[in-house]
Computed example of a mutant assay.
Amino acid sequence: MENNNLKQTSNKESSSVQAVERALLILKFIGESPSPISVGDLAKQVELNRTTVWRLIGTLENQGFVEKEPISKGYQLGYSLFQLTSQNNPYDSLVRRARKILEELKDEVGETVLLSVPKQDGILTIDQIDTDHSVRLVDYSHTISPLHCTSNGKILLSLLPKKELDIILEQTLEPFSKYTITDPEELRKELEKTYTQKIGTSIGELDENENAISAPIFDRKKNLVAFITLGGPSFRLTKDDLLLLSDRMLEAAKQIEAQLD
C-alpha cells in the first residue's frame, strides 16, 4: 500500500514538472515571437496539441503572464511577467523612441501628453509628460483606463470587428461622469465618427473636468501598437481646441511610427 502511494505521489510530481516545463516553453515562444501569436501557431511551435496549449494558456492568462492582443487575438507576454523584473520593462524601447516627439508636442501645445498601449481590458498608460501648470491631468502612469469613455479607448473600439464590438456594447457601460456615453447606439455612432476621422476624443467622459484627444500608432505590419494622447483641464482645453489639433496629433503619431522601423 505504501509503495502504491509513493508511485502516485511520484506520478503527480512528474506531471506537475511536465506542466511547468510546457508552460515555460510556451512563454519562451511567445516572448520570441515578433508579433502576437495564435494558439494554433503556438501549438505547432511547441509541438503540443491545441487542447493542452489552451489549458496552459488559460492558466498563464489568469495569472497575467500572457494576454490576448485585442485586435489580432494572438497572445503576447503579459504585464505581470514584467512586474517581476523591473529592469526589463517591455515598453522601454517604445517609450524611448517616442519620448522626443512627446516632449515636442507637450512644449508646442502646453498640455500633458501620454503614450499608451492597448490591453484586453482597457488602455495602459506607459508614459506621461506633464506641464508645469498647477492644474493639469491626473497622473495615469501605469494605470489601465476604460475603453468606452477615453479618447484612445474609442480608437481601439472603432477598430474591432463588428461581432466583438457588439459583445462589448451588450455589456453595461459604466458612467464615470455625467458626460459618459452609456447608450450603446449613441456610442456606436461616436465610434463610427472616430473610425472615419482616425482620431478619438473624450469630452469630460472619464473625468468631467478633463478633455483629451488621441491618435493611433501602427507598426510597419499595420498592427495597432500604441496611442498618443494630449489632454488637459476642460477650462483650458476646450472641445474646439482639441478638434483643431487633429492633424497635429496624426502627424505626431506618424513621426513615432517612423521611429519603429
Rank of each mutant, 00 (worst) to 15 (best):
A226E: 06
D247V: 04
K221D: 08
T238W: 08
K221W: 03
P233F: 07
A226G: 13
G232H: 01
D241L: 01
G231V: 11
K222E: 13
R220I: 12
K221A: 12
S234M: 13
L230E: 08
L250R: 04
D240C: 07
L244Y: 05
L243S: 05
P233T: 10
D241C: 05
L244D: 09
L244E: 11
R236A: 08
F227D: 05
L245G: 00
V225K: 14
L237V: 10
L243W: 10
L245M: 14
L224P: 06
D247T: 07
L244T: 11
F235I: 15
L245Q: 08
V225I: 15
N223G: 03
S234A: 14
T229F: 12
S234L: 10
K222S: 14
F235W: 13
K222P: 01
I228K: 05
V225C: 10
L244Q: 09
L242K: 06
T229R: 11
G232A: 00
L230R: 06
L242H: 05
K239D: 14
N223P: 00
D247R: 08
L243D: 03
V225A: 11
G231S: 11
L244S: 11
D247H: 06
L224E: 09
L243R: 12
T229P: 04
G231D: 12
K221V: 04
R236M: 09
L237I: 07
T229Q: 14
A226M: 06
G231Y: 07
L243Q: 11
L224H: 08
N223H: 13
V225L: 12
M249N: 03
P233E: 01
N223R: 15
L237Y: 01
K239R: 15
T229W: 09
S234H: 14
L245P: 02
R236S: 09
N223C: 08
L237Q: 02
K221S: 08
F227G: 06
P233Q: 07
D247L: 07
E251V: 01
L250C: 03
D240A: 14
T238V: 10
F227R: 02
T229M: 12
D241F: 02
K221L: 05
G231N: 13
R220L: 10
D247Y: 00
K222N: 15
L237S: 03
L224K: 05
T229N: 13
A226P: 06
L230T: 08
L245C: 03
R248Q: 07
V225W: 02
T238R: 15
L245W: 04
L250D: 02
R248F: 02
L237T: 04
E251H: 00
T238E: 13
T238I: 12
K239P: 03
K239G: 01
G232W: 00
L230F: 04
F235Y: 12
T229H: 13
N223Y: 04
L230Y: 08
S246A: 15
E251Q: 10
G232Y: 01
T229S: 15
R220A: 10
L245S: 01
D247K: 11
A226D: 03
L237F: 03
R248W: 00
R220C: 06
R236N: 04
T229V: 15
I228N: 01
R220P: 01
G231W: 02
L243G: 09
V225D: 07
K222G: 02
G231H: 10
K239H: 12
N223D: 15
K239W: 10
R248D: 01
R220N: 11
S246K: 15
K222V: 07
